[in-house]
Design a protein around this nucleic acid. Structure first.
Length: 424
RNA sequence: GGCGGGUUGCCCGAGUGGCCAAAGGGAGCAGACUGUAAAUCUGUCGGCUGAUGCCUACGCAGGUUCGAACCCUGCACCCGCCA
């Protein structure tokens, strides 16, 4: 069995763990069961979640049993953020999102068979839906000290700010109960999560210890992962269009591929270490390549292709690569064959029109700019392109000779924002 | 409960009757340079409109005025100090 702790350290993933030697030993002694929870706060997971999901995958590959927990119950309550109270989502929405996220998670782990490392899917609604108020207060509440709960950073910052509802204040009890239930049901002895989850996870450890005395499954552990940061100080996983989702309906495979391809040189090595399943040697070779010849973006390409394949499949990845080549290639768009063009354009935001519009209207129709004023501004600034040729006339009209294969016009704002207009 | 201060555009923040779509900074966007990167510099940054017009906007509702982000009244929320 590979030393998974060493591997995770090499990747720079580990933020904090409880007793590291004890954790290392139990991981080495045999398969353990590990869980991570995902609350349905949106219709899809996003790239930030990949850090955790893929760590579960690594642990499974190292022979351990992963449990993917979807927070059908905790998603109804809301993990308190340091800044402000969350808006509650209605129960139907949460149920729908729970199902979607469950589907996404199932793609990253192996649930087939009945081996010691076969993954388990769980939903905390299963053990909280029938929990009575009396049970909650007697069996769980008695183990939680208000003094300790008040001392938590998130709670402190909320008390100093806009306040916190009893609902969110109680969230930690439910998450702790999850760990307890998974310990009892599946002998789960490790919970992993983002570094912001440290408090919730250790609260769960306390509950497990108090209720079970750490028997019969032994000591339970906690491991948190560094949240990815970006060299330019902005938040990882966001683009102009918002979060980068795993759901192809929300973020196309093309956009997903482009997101990774556009990684900052200074960040790409860390991303590779965090996400890639390539060998250490291969990753180090890519790092050298990137340092010596950054313009080639070998590391970005490798990262983008690996993750797009993992999340969307080899076919979708190949299509995204092909589309990127076609759309950003220096070649003449008019020489592209119809099939390649159609496939490329399918990846872009597009608009159908019945007659050829002005460039300004076309930019608005495809959603490349927010308003006509912004579109005019873009043209004036020289940031508008038709079929990769800069537009200089503010009131330019698209003409029949702009049509590619009699049907498409490719629009671009700036260097890398593409859209298409379809006639007919 | 009392007294005082505050609520401005995506964020921070100036503005105390007309010259205010509102200084300045940040974020965003575009250009130059490049590599679909970063940094830097420049421009831009409510909407509609082929040009100084219209609409929307300075917590909410109403009022005064030829004219209000700016004055008055009420309400909501936030922050201090005192009980």
């Amino acid at each position: 069995m590979t030393d998974i702790v060493e591997d995770l350290k090499w990747r720079g993933i580990i933020a904090q763990t409880t007793d590291e030697d004890a954790l290392r030993k139990s991981l080495a002694d045999g398969p353990i069961t590990v869980y991570a929870g995902f609350d349905p706060t949106a219709a899809s997971l996003h790239v930030g979640h990949l850090v955790i999901v893929l760590t579960l995958r690594r642990l499974q590959r190292a022979g351990h049993r992963p449990i993917a927990l979807v927070g059908g119950a905790t998603g109804l309550i809301g993990d308190p953020k340091p800044s402000a109270e969350r808006q509650l989502n209605d129960t139907d929405t949460v149920r729908d999102w729970t199902g979607r996220i469950r589907g996404q998670l199932s793609a990253f782990l192996d649930f087939e068979g009945d081996r010691p490392d076969t993954a388990i899917m769980a939903n905390n609604l299963d053990w909280t839906a029938d929990l009575t108020a009396i049970d909650l207060l007697r069996d769980l509440g008695k183990h939680f000290s208000i003094n300790q709960m008040l001392a938590r950073d998130t709670v402190k910052s909320r008390l100093g700010g806009e306040g916190i509802s009893y609902t969110e204040f109680s969230y930690v009890i439910l998450q702790s109960f999850d760990y307890l239930e998974l310990y009892r049901r599946h002998g789960c002895t490790l919970q992993i999560g983002g570094s912001d989850q440290w408090g919730n996870i250790t609260a769960g450890l306390d509950l497990v210890r108090r209720v079970t005395g750490n028997t019969p499954h032994g000591q339970a552990h906690a491991l948190t992962m560094n949240l990815l940061t970006k060299a330019d100080g902005t938040k990882f996983g966001k683009t102009e269009g918002g979060a980068v989702w795993l759901d192809p309906e929300l973020t196309t495979p093309y956009a997903f591929y482009q997101f990774w391809l556009n990684s900052d040189d200074r960040d790409v090595a860390r991303y590779l270490r965090t996400f890639s399943f390539r060998s250490h040697d291969e990753i180090e070779a890519l790092e050298r390549e990137s340092a010596e010849r950054p313009a080639g973006r070998a590391a970005q390409r490798a990262l983008a292709e690996e993750l797009t394949t993992l999340v969307h499949g080899a076919d979708q990845c190949a299509a995204a690569v092909e589309a990127s080549r076609a759309l950003f290639g220096q070649g003449d768009l008019a020489t592209l064959d119809r099939a390649t063009l159609n496939a490329a354009v399918a990846e872009l935001p597009s608009a159908s029109v019945t007659e050829l519009p002005t460039v300004v209207d076309a930019l608005v129709a495809t959603g490349l700019v927010a308003s006509k004023g912004a579109a005019r501004r873009t043209v004036k600034e020289g940031g508008a392109y038709v079929n990769n040729v800069k537009v200089t006339e503010e009131d330019a009209l698209l003409g029949a000779d702009d049509l590619l294969h009699g049907q498409w016009v490719l629009l671009r704002r700036g260097k890398r924002n593409l859209g298409a207009v379809k006639l007919g």
